[in-house]
């Protein structure tokens, strides 16, 4: 479980890269784990790298949206980075615009924006 998803703390930001075969249970666990770390380690931001994900369905989309909401309550910003074109098209078609979530092209972009904030 911990093997498929890696979490690193860099510049008070949690860098999370999600693997393609992540299951619903694992992503819920991840949400739980991240919520705790945001509050305990005084994290400013969470960067979710989803470039490995070929599919983001409504379930995963919803967990991401919730995570953005949770981290905002805990005074941290959530960035989704590296979304594939096909995933973006599909999410829009599903009506999931993730308005609460910030987005960036890559990890580097997200970190630059976090530094600026």
């Amino acid at each position: 479980m911990a093997g498929v998803t890696t979490i690193h703390l860099v510049e008070r930001a949690l860098l999370v890269s999600i693997q393609d075969d992540v299951t619903d249970t694992e992503i819920i666990d991840l949400q739980d784990q991240l919520s705790h770390r945001i509050s305990e380690e005084e994290v400013r931001g969470v960067v979710l790298d989803i470039s490995a994900l070929e599919i983001v369905d409504t379930f995963v989309g919803r967990v991401i949206a919730q995570l953005a909401g949770i981290s905002r309550l805990l005074d941290a910003e959530t960035y989704v980075v590296g979304m594939r074109p096909a995933v973006a098209v599909t999410l829009v078609e599903l009506g999931m615009y993730l308005p609460e979530t910030r987005t960036a092209l890559s990890l580097t972009h997200a970190l630059t924006q976090l530094r600026r904030a």
Binding site: G82, L91, A104, L105, S106
Partner: peptide
Amino acid sequence: LRAAAAVRLMGA
């Protein structure tokens, strides 16, 4: 608007 939304999701 959908195109704009997809562009934003990709981080641009």
